[in-house]
Amino acid sequence: DLSALRVEEVQNVINAMQKILECPICLELIKEPVSTKCDHIFCKFCMLKLLNQKKGPSQCPLCKNDITKRSLQESTRFSQLVEELLKIICAFQLDTGLEYANSYNFAKKENNSPEHLKDEVSIIQSMGYRNRAKRLLQSEPENPSLQETSLSVQLSNLGTVRTLRTKQRIQPQRTSVYIELGSDSSEDTVNKATYCSVGDQELLQITPQGTRDEISLDSAKKAACEFSETDVTNTEHHQPSNNDLNTTEKRAAERHPEKYQGSSVSNLHVEPCGTNTHASSLQHENSSLLLTKDRMNVEKAEF
């Protein structure tokens, strides 16, 4: 173990290094160091905050020279020094078990990766560091076993998940096959086929009936047209017969005018059967003409 005197000496050296690497504005270890034209180094955030307070150039807090945003430059070497100082402080805390008085939040800088452990060898070769390295080497064999167990647990979990997924996939297939086998029997399929065939026959029977009705309507229309044509021909046949009657009536009127007047009046009210309204109107006109002729003949006879 380190003596108290040596611990104090190391602590004083760390404090001196820390004062050199402090920012003059925030009085902390410089984060993202930036250098000016006057070779003074500050935190990048502190300098941008200072420049944004005034429009135009501002003055350096140490030498009062003008500073602009374009004049600022990043210093990589200074950032490396800060990183190495942080590593020294971490090693000091691990070796002594004491917390550094002016320690900052170094938890963000710590890294437990194997590459980081290899890099620590180049920091300080001390008894405390050696003991700590031995402890780490002793704890390393235990870690692979834990990793193997965790991997086995994960693989077993994956296997159970896969088996569950396969079961879920197989179950719908089985149910679907069961439904297909038990849903419709052979008799049901035959009945469905016969039902479809009967429906098709009914459709075939319905369509000819409609065509037959249309044919019957067409035949009825044709018969009505033929009947009207026969009526017209009958009226045409009746007209010459009426003319013959008129000639006979004229002759009778010349011989017996008194008797014919009474008979002509009675004939006005008689309509021949089986004739249309057109034929009756023609008869009325003929009878009126005959009456006028008879009157003329009677007057001539009187004179």
Rank of each mutant, 00 (worst) to 15 (best):
Glu83Val: 05
Leu5Met: 02
Asn12Gly: 05
Lys49Asp: 03
Pro144Lys: 07
Ala16Trp: 04
Leu81Phe: 05
Ser156Gln: 12
Gly128Val: 03
Leu217Glu: 06
Ser266Cys: 10
Ser156Gly: 10
Phe106Cys: 14
Phe78Glu: 06
Arg255Met: 00
Ser122Tyr: 09
Leu85Thr: 01
Val153Glu: 15
Cys26Met: 00
Cys26Ile: 00
Glu249Arg: 09
Val121Gly: 13
Gln201Val: 10
His278Trp: 10
Glu271Val: 13
Gln283Ala: 01
Leu29Phe: 08
Arg77Ser: 10
Leu50Arg: 00
Glu9Ser: 03
Met17Cys: 01
Ile30Trp: 09
Pro257Thr: 10
Lys54Phe: 06
Ser228Tyr: 08
Asp39Leu: 02
Leu155Lys: 15
Lys44Leu: 01
Glu140Trp: 06
Leu136Lys: 09
Ser3His: 12
Leu217Thr: 06
Leu29Val: 05
Leu86Ser: 13
Ile124Asn: 10
Asn267Trp: 15
Cys273Ser: 06
His284Arg: 07
Glu84Val: 05
Gly210Tyr: 11
Gly199Ala: 06
Arg132His: 06
Thr68Cys: 09
Leu136Thr: 11
Pro208Ser: 07
Arg132Gly: 06
Gln53Pro: 01
Asn143Leu: 12
Glu140Gln: 03
Phe92Ser: 00
Ala101Thr: 09
Arg135Phe: 04
Arg169Tyr: 13
Gly274Ile: 03
Asn15Lys: 04
Leu136Met: 03
Ile88Met: 06
Gln93Cys: 02
Asn297Thr: 14
Ala133Pro: 12
Ser266Ile: 11
Thr160Asp: 12
His238Arg: 15
Asn105Val: 15
Thr68Glu: 14
Gln205Cys: 03
Thr235Pro: 08
Ala133Arg: 08
Thr211Phe: 03
Cys26Asp: 01
Gln201Asp: 15
Leu155Pro: 09
Pro57His: 09
Arg169Gln: 10
Ser266Phe: 06
Glu285Gly: 06
Leu291Phe: 10
Cys38Gly: 00
Ile215Pro: 04
His40Asn: 01
Val198Met: 03
Lys250Ala: 01
Thr277Phe: 11
Lys54Arg: 10
Asp294Met: 09
Val190Ala: 10
Thr248Phe: 11
Ser266Thr: 14
Ala16Tyr: 00
Thr68Gly: 02
Asn143Met: 14
Gln209Ile: 10
Gly262Phe: 15
Gln239Lys: 12
Pro57Gly: 12
Gln239Pro: 06
Ser103Asn: 03
Ile41Gln: 03
Ala279Ser: 11
Cys273Val: 09
Val265Asn: 13
Asn131Lys: 12
His278Thr: 01
Leu137Pro: 13
Pro272Glu: 15
Glu249Ile: 03
Thr160Ile: 05
Ser197Gly: 10
Val161Cys: 06
Thr163Tyr: 04
Tyr129Thr: 15
Lys37Ile: 12
Leu268Phe: 08
Ser264Tyr: 10
Phe227Leu: 03
Arg212Glu: 05
Pro114Leu: 07
Leu2Gly: 03
Asp95Arg: 00
Ser113Arg: 15
Thr96Leu: 01
Asp95Glu: 00
Asn15His: 14
Leu48Cys: 10
Asn131Cys: 06
Lys108Phe: 13
Cys273Tyr: 14
Ser126Thr: 14
Asn15Ser: 13
Cys90Asp: 15
Pro33Thr: 08
Ser186Asp: 09
Phe106Arg: 10
Tyr129Asp: 06
Gln201Cys: 03
Leu86Met: 09
Arg132Cys: 03
Ser150Gln: 11
Pro24Val: 00
Gly262Lys: 02
Ile20Leu: 08
Asn143Gly: 10
Val82Pro: 05
Asp66Ala: 08
Gln209Thr: 11
Phe78Asn: 10
Asn243Ala: 09
Ser197Arg: 06
Thr248Leu: 15
Ser75Gln: 15
Leu85Tyr: 14
Ser264Gly: 11
Leu48Asn: 14
Lys221Gly: 10
Glu140Met: 03
Ser152Thr: 07
Glu226Gly: 09
Gln138Phe: 10
Cys225Phe: 15
Pro114Val: 11
Arg130Thr: 10
Glu84Arg: 08
Asn102Leu: 13
Gln147Leu: 12
Cys38Leu: 00
Arg212Ile: 09
Asp294Arg: 04
Cys26Ala: 00
Thr76Met: 04
Glu9Tyr: 01
Ser152Tyr: 07
His278Tyr: 06
Tyr104Trp: 13
Gln138Met: 08
Leu62Tyr: 02
Asn234His: 02
Asn12Lys: 08
Ile41His: 03
Tyr260Asp: 15
Lys134Val: 10
Arg135Asp: 07
Lys87Leu: 07
Ser126Tyr: 08
Lys44Asp: 02
Lys19Phe: 00
Ala4Leu: 08
Ser263Met: 09
Ser3Pro: 06
Pro208Tyr: 12
Ser145Arg: 10
Glu254Ile: 12
Ser79Val: 04
His256Glu: 05
Leu50Ile: 08
Thr68Ala: 00
Arg135Asn: 08
Ala193His: 12
Arg132Thr: 05
Gln73Ala: 05
Gly159Met: 04
Arg255Cys: 12
Ser3Arg: 07
Leu217Arg: 01
Asn234Tyr: 11
Ile25Cys: 00
Leu2Ile: 00
Asn15Thr: 08
Arg77Ile: 14
Asp218Gln: 02
Ser58Thr: 03
His269Phe: 13
Lys118Arg: 06
Glu120Pro: 11
Arg130Lys: 11
Gly159Val: 04
Glu8Ala: 09
Ile215Thr: 08
Leu48His: 07
Ser228Pro: 11
Gln53Asn: 07
Ser264Cys: 12
Asp231Arg: 13
Cys46Pro: 01
Leu289Pro: 06
Pro272Cys: 09
Arg165Cys: 09
Gln18Pro: 01
Ala107Val: 08
Thr149Ser: 10
Lys54His: 04
Cys43Tyr: 00
Leu158Trp: 10
Gln154Ile: 00
Gln73Ile: 14
Asp188His: 04
Gly262Ile: 06
Asn131His: 15
Ala101Val: 06
Leu137Tyr: 08
Ser139Met: 10
Gln93His: 08
Leu86Ile: 09
Ile124Glu: 10
Asn52Tyr: 02
Glu99Ala: 03
Asn157Trp: 03
Asn131Gly: 14
Leu21Gly: 04
Thr160Ser: 15
Cys90Ile: 04
Val298Lys: 13
Ser35Phe: 15
Ile67Leu: 05
Phe45Lys: 08
Arg212Gly: 11
Gln138Pro: 08
Ile30Ser: 13
Arg6Asn: 07
Phe106Ser: 10
Tyr260Ile: 13
Glu254Gly: 02
Lys64Cys: 02
His269Tyr: 09
Asn157Pro: 12
Leu27Arg: 03
Glu32Ser: 07
Ile25Ser: 01
Ala4Phe: 10
Ser150Asn: 12
Gln73Lys: 11
Arg6Leu: 03
Gln93Arg: 06
Asp244Gly: 05
Lys49Cys: 01
Val153Arg: 09
Leu204Cys: 03
Lys64Ile: 00
Phe106Gln: 12
Ser58Tyr: 05
Asp66Arg: 03
Ala4Tyr: 12
Leu5Ser: 13
Gly199His: 13
Ser71Lys: 01
Ser58Gly: 13
Glu285Asp: 10
Ile25Leu: 01
Leu48Trp: 09
Gln125Lys: 13
Ile206Ser: 15
Ser264Ile: 02
Ser186Ala: 11
Leu146Trp: 10
Ser280Tyr: 11
Lys64Arg: 15
Phe42Val: 02
Glu28Asp: 09
Lys55Phe: 03
Asp95Ser: 00
Glu99Arg: 09
Leu81Val: 06
Asn105Glu: 08
Leu155Val: 08
Leu151Ser: 13
Asn65Met: 14
Ile30Glu: 00
Leu27Val: 02
Val232Arg: 11
Lys55Ser: 10
Tyr104His: 13
Met127Ser: 01
Asp1Tyr: 11
Ala301Ser: 14
Pro272Val: 11
Asn276Ile: 08
Leu94His: 09
Thr76Lys: 09
Ala223Arg: 06
Glu22Phe: 01
Arg212Leu: 15
Pro272Asn: 14
Ser150Glu: 13
Ala223Leu: 06
Arg6Pro: 04
Pro141Ile: 09
Ile206Met: 04
Ser216Ile: 12
